Simulated scan of single mutants.
Amino acid sequence: MIPCFFHPDQLAFKPVYEWAFGEKIDHPETTARAENILAALKARPELFEMRAPKAQPLSALRDAHNYNLLTLYNTARQLPEDETFYPSVFPRDPKTKGDPTTLRQAGCFCFDSGTPLNNRTFDAAAWSAACAYEGARLLKKGEHPVVYALSRPPGHHATKDHFGGYSYFNNSGIAARYLRRAGRVAVLDIDFHHGNGTQSMFYRDDKVLTISIHGDPGEFYPFYCGFPNETGSGRGEGYNLNFPLPTKITFEEWMQTLEQDALPAIENFAPDYLIVAAGFDTYRLDPIGDFEFFTADYTTLGARIAELGYPTLVVQEGGYYTPDLGANVAALLEGTSRLYNF
Rank of each mutant, 00 (worst) to 15 (best):
P3A: 12
F5T: 08
P8M: 00
D9I: 01
D9S: 14
Q10K: 11
Q10T: 07
Y17D: 05
F21S: 15
G22M: 02
K24F: 03
A32Q: 14
R33F: 07
N36R: 14
L38R: 04
L41C: 00
E46I: 05
A52L: 10
A55M: 15
A55E: 15
P57L: 12
P57H: 12
P57T: 08
S59W: 09
D63K: 14
H65V: 08
H65I: 05
N66D: 14
L70Y: 05
T71C: 14
Q78I: 04
P80S: 10
Y86G: 10
P87Q: 09
V89P: 04
V89A: 10
F90T: 11
P91N: 01
P94I: 07
P94M: 03
G98T: 02
F109M: 00
C110M: 03
L117R: 03
A124V: 06
A129V: 00
A132N: 04
G135W: 02
G142C: 08
E143L: 14
Y148A: 12
H157M: 11
T159Q: 06
G164H: 04
Y166H: 05
Y166P: 00
S167C: 15
N170I: 01
G173C: 04
L179P: 03
R180M: 11
A182T: 12
G183A: 10
A186H: 09
A186W: 06
V187Y: 04
D189F: 06
H193L: 06
G195I: 09
T198E: 10
R204K: 10
K207F: 13
P217W: 01
G218P: 00
E219V: 02
E219R: 14
F220K: 11
P222F: 09
C225M: 12
N229K: 14
N229S: 14
N242R: 11
L245T: 09
P246S: 07
K248W: 01
Q256C: 09
T257I: 13
L258T: 02
Q260I: 10
D261W: 01
A262D: 11
P264T: 03
I266A: 06
A277G: 13
F280L: 14
T282E: 07
E292G: 00
F294S: 00
D297G: 04
A303V: 05
Y310R: 12
L313P: 08
V314A: 11
V314T: 13
G318K: 02
G319T: 07
Y320D: 05
Y321F: 15
N328F: 09
V329A: 08
A331P: 07
R338A: 08
N341L: 12
